[in-house]
Design a protein around this nucleic acid. Structure first.
Lengths: 232, 232
DNA sequence: GCAGTTTCGTGATATATATCATATAATTAT
DNA sequence: ATAATTATATGATATATATCACGAAACTGC
């Protein structure tokens, strides 16, 4: 985690976008900018909560540990996304870890300043509340999928999510290079099972994999897979 | 769902507890009270969102459907708890259902009034945001457990949660009569598997079951089961 | 540039859990 | 009260998925 001399543009994250203009100088004075290399951790499950992070560039995974070497990825974050808000509240430690998936730059504000911003700006607080609400919905959908969906359906869902969240180029190549291991951690299955499932999808001409990049040929078929697995 | 003539005491739920005293008459004018019989639904996944519910008496399960006859229970609610807040936001339909587990009385306010209360009362909004944050944490812990824990560990966790949330009498009998089916829906396993797991726990003298009521003899052993299943 | 570590790829095997089947007891509805 | 539904109880069987095992390729640090 290296400190950046160059700061953010004060327009990217939620804190800045919703900021009262009188409050902007305060934000400018309090935000800290950092760079992380691929694989570096922003913070780790169990660390004392010190503040809130916003992704300014690059991609980050938010994950929960399991035993020594297993994990479950609960969310991916990219430019503009807030990270570490799960630490808000009376809890003193982060319930999750956050790790850079590629070179990342971060905006950070300490918790006291974040709290002040919430006190001073009703709209910001309201929007944050809505954001939590939608994350909760998302989390519970994901949870149901883990409980009742087959790995194939979960992989289909995961690919669709990446497709929607990070986008893709004209040939359908996902705008995100995700390792099989991370895909496994996101779907809550083992590496081997996910690998085999991906192979099936390739055989069925639903996706292609070249040079580790995944391309989605038929989002419709993926959607159908996911839907039929919902037993509806 | 039968309308009650007798209203609530205006002190039980979050809306009332955090209410500005000038706002209380408005709450009194807007809240509606209902009674439900066991098994009746407050609302169903996919219903149009109309307002927010508070449990005034009795217990409620909040659940997500799966296929035709499967479900996953995401939360239990009791006196004072808010229900339906998952409908807040731009979404127009509830992402979950809520069903009375026993005779229940409810306080209800329509969404417009709820929103006004949030606008008028910064503290209320802040507390609601914190509540969402803690629910999100809880949801993600539950999610990880579903992904990586054995059924035995999940049952142990579920029993501990019921133990903590609803309490127990001097002989350890849970202050909640939960059906095997609901326990299965909460742990994300089938009825049969949960049944067998409970039998094991009875054999190991960790719990007893008499007259469908579950008593926890050794919360410590349950905790140990849950912990060792975390692979730590 | 080479050693070391991580990711990738694939088969064989084990096992936890779901599914199916069926009987009885207990509620709930008529 | 009696029928009908729903919850309980248990065994037999099937299967999806994890686990183990191993080699190759591809990064990464020094």
């Amino acid at each position: 985690m290296k400190k950046d001399k160059q700061g953010c543009d004060l327009t990217t994250c939620m804190l800045c976008r919703l900021c009262l203009k009188e409050w902007t100088p305060a934000v400018e004075a309090h935000r800290r900018n950092f760079s992380l290399k691929k694989g570096e951790m922003l913070f780790k499950e169990g660390d004392k909560v010190t503040g809130i992070y916003f992704v300014y560039a690059g991609k980050v995974k938010v994950h929960k540990h399991w035993g020594k070497d297993k994990e479950l990825i609960v969310r991916f974050a990219q430019k503009g996304d807030i990270v570490g808000h799960r630490g808000v509240g009376q809890e003193l430690v982060y319930p999750i870890s956050a790790t850079a998936l590629e070179p990342v730059t971060i905006c950070y504000v300490d918790m006291a300043f974040f709290q002040s911003s919430l006190q001073v700006n009703h709209t910001f607080l309201y929007e944050l509340m809505l954001f939590y609400a939608s994350e909760l919905q998302e989390s519970e959908r994901h949870m149901r999928n883990l409980a009742h969906m087959s790995v194939k359906g979960r992989v289909a869902n995961a690919l669709l999510l990446l497709h929607g969240k990070f986008g893709f180029n004209t040939s359908g190549v996902l705008n995100m290079k995700i390792s099989r291991n991370d895909l496994a951690a996101y779907t809550g299955a083992t590496y081997e099972t996910v690998f085999r499932t991906l192979s099936e999808l390739v055989q069925d001409r639903i996706i292609t994999i070249a040079d580790k990049e995944i391309a989605i040929i038929s989002p419709e078929k993926l959607l159908r897979l996911a839907k039929e697995d919902e037993g509806l």
